[in-house]
Amino acid sequence: MTTAPERARDDVSLRESIPPLHVWAKTFVVGLFMGTADAVPGVSGGTIALIAGVYERLIAAITAVTPRRFFDGVRALTPLDGGVSLDRAAAVLEEVDGWFLIALLAGILSAVVVVTRIVDIANEAAPVLLFGVFFGLIGASAVILFRAITVRTVPEIVAAAAGFTVAFVVSGYGEVLDSGGLIVVFGAGALAISAMILPGISGSLVLVILSQYERMSTTLSEFVSALAGAVTGNGLAPVVEHGTVVVTFVCGGLVGLFTISRVIRRALDANREVTLAFLVALVLGALRAPIVTLGGDEYDVVWNTATMEAFAGAALVGAVVVFVLDWYAVDLDLDAV
C-alpha cells in the first residue's frame, strides 16, 4: 500500500519534498487505471483506488485540502507575502500530500483524454455497440454492488426506491438536459467528480444519467484537437469555444470535490446503510439511460431484430468485463469506505 507522509514539516525544502521517480511512476499508473475506469460508465475509479490500496490516502489528501491551505500555497508562489518561496509552497504540498495528488491526477487526466478520444470515435462509428457495452457495464456493476449491501429496513427500502426513481426519471429528460447551457455542465461536473471518489459509483455514469456523457467526451476530444490545431496555426477560436465548456466542467468538479463529496461522506458517517442503498440504486435506475439516448433525436435508432442483437451482444461483453474484474481482482468491501 502506498502510504502518506506521517506529518507535514514546516522546514521542508522543495528538493526534499519531491518523491523518488519510482514512487511518482507507481502513483501515475494507478491514476491511469482510475482514469480509464471513470471514463466509461461501470467500474468506478474509487474501486480501482481500493484495489490499489490508495483509497484511504486519497480521501485523506482530498480532505486535507482546505481554502486556507490553498491560499497559503498561492501566496507562497506570489510576491504578495514576503516574496516567492518554493520551500513554503513545498511545505503546503506536504501538508496535503500534494505530490501524491499531482501524480495521481496526471495519470487520471491522461487516461481520460485517451479513452474519451476512443469513445468519441466509437460513438460516431457504432453507437449501438458503444451504448450496449455501457448497458452491460452498468448492469453488471449494479449486480455486484447490490450483492455487497443489504436492503432490509424501511428507511433502506425507501432510500433505494428514491435512488432508482431519481436516476430513472432524470434519464428520461436527456434532450432537455443535453440542450442545457454551462450551468448544466457545471452541475454535471460537480456531481460526476463527487461520484468518482466513491467505490462502485462511476463519474461517467452520472454523466450518462444527466445526458452529458457524449457532450463532454466529444467536447474534450475536440478541445484537445483544437489545442493541436492552434500550435499549427489554425487559430484560437476553437480552443476558446470548446475550452469554455471544459473549464466550466472542471470548475464544477472542483466545487463538487470540496462540497458535495464532503456531504456524501458525512451522510455515509451518519447512516451508511441508507446512503449506500440510495447510491447503489442510482446505478440500477441508470440502466434506462443508454436505451433512451439511442432512441433520442441524435441517434434515432430503430429497434429491430438486428439492432437488438447487436446491443445485447455488446452488453454481454461489457458485463463479462466487469464480472471478470470482480472475480479476479475486486473484493469490494463497502464497509471499508
Rank of each mutant, 00 (worst) to 15 (best):
T2G: 07
A4E: 08
P5K: 10
E6D: 12
V12F: 04
S13M: 05
S13K: 11
S13P: 00
R15I: 10
S17H: 10
I18R: 12
V23I: 13
V23K: 14
W24I: 13
A25M: 15
G31A: 07
L32T: 00
F33L: 10
M34C: 09
T36P: 03
A39F: 03
V40W: 08
P41N: 05
P41I: 06
P41K: 12
G42M: 06
V43S: 08
G46R: 00
G46W: 01
T47K: 08
T47Y: 01
I48N: 01
I48E: 02
I48P: 00
A49P: 09
L50V: 15
G53C: 10
G53I: 11
E56A: 15
R57S: 14
A60Q: 14
T63M: 04
T66Q: 08
T66C: 12
F70I: 15
D72I: 04
G73I: 07
G73D: 06
G82E: 04
G83T: 14
S85Q: 11
S85W: 09
A90N: 13
L93P: 09
E94P: 13
L101Q: 05
L104T: 00
L104S: 01
L105N: 00
G107S: 08
V113Q: 00
V113W: 03
V114W: 10
R117S: 15
I118E: 13
I118G: 05
D120F: 11
I121Y: 07
P127W: 02
G132A: 05
V133A: 15
V133H: 02
G136D: 07
L137N: 06
G139N: 06
A140G: 14
A142Q: 05
L145C: 08
F146S: 03
V151H: 02
V154N: 02
E156V: 07
G163C: 08
V170T: 15
V170W: 04
S171V: 07
E175K: 12
L177R: 14
S179A: 13
G180C: 04
G181D: 02
I183K: 05
V184M: 10
L191M: 09
L191Y: 09
S194L: 07
S194E: 02
A195E: 03
I197S: 01
L198C: 07
I201D: 00
G203T: 07
G203F: 01
L205P: 14
L207H: 10
I209S: 05
L210Q: 03
S211M: 09
S211Q: 03
Q212T: 06
Y213R: 11
Y213S: 03
Y213K: 08
V231L: 11
T232K: 15
G235M: 10
P238K: 03
G243V: 05
G243E: 06
V245L: 14
V245N: 07
V247L: 12
F249T: 09
F258T: 07
T259I: 09
R265Y: 12
D269E: 14
V274W: 04
V274M: 09
T275W: 05
A277E: 01
A281K: 02
V283C: 10
G285A: 07
G285R: 10
A289N: 10
G295L: 09
G295D: 14
D297M: 09
V301I: 15
V301H: 13
F311A: 01
A312F: 13
L316A: 15
V320T: 13
V322I: 14
V324T: 07
L334E: 05
L334C: 12
V337D: 02
